[in-house]
Design a protein around this nucleic acid. Structure first.
Length: 107
DNA sequence: TAGATGACTCACA
DNA sequence: ATGTGAGCCATCT
């Protein structure tokens, strides 16, 4: 199962973020948002998986980021062209809509 | 195998 | 808008 999550993270296009629930649904386990977060928590392989692109329902960044905290996460996001406002991102702009797996930022 | 845990989400006051 | 409560799920011990 974790593999599914990790794999999905790798499919997240540049300049785009996803919510836990979105991942859960994407791997075929809608409602397992909690489990998804738990998985990322136990396996903070941020060096391989863009877990920093994972935000909650309201686009809020994870406060328990395992690498450098909210700071590092925000840095990474902005590095992808994502504007982080008060530790949040505009899901309506950077959030993936269904199979909107394009490989470029919205601009 | 069973019980506890948590980077979640939704609903209500 | 903020705080509390309950539901849900995979992983860990």
């Amino acid at each position: 199962m974790k593999e599914q999550v990790y794999r999905f993270l790798q499919t997240v296009p540049y300049g785009r973020v996803v919510t836990y629930g979105q991942i859960a649904a994407a791997i075929g386990r809608p409602g397992a948002a909690r489990a998804v977060g738990n998985i990322l928590h136990k396996n903070p392989d941020g060096d391989k998986y863009p877990c920093y692109k994972v935000v909650n329902s309201v686009g809020r960044l994870s406060a328990h980021y395992a690498f450098g905290g909210l700071d590092a996460q925000r840095e990474r996001l902005e590095r992808e062209g994502i504007t982080v406002t008060d530790g949040r991102v505009e899901l309506g702009v950077y959030g993936m809509r269904d199979a909107d797996a394009r490989a470029e930022p919205i601009d």
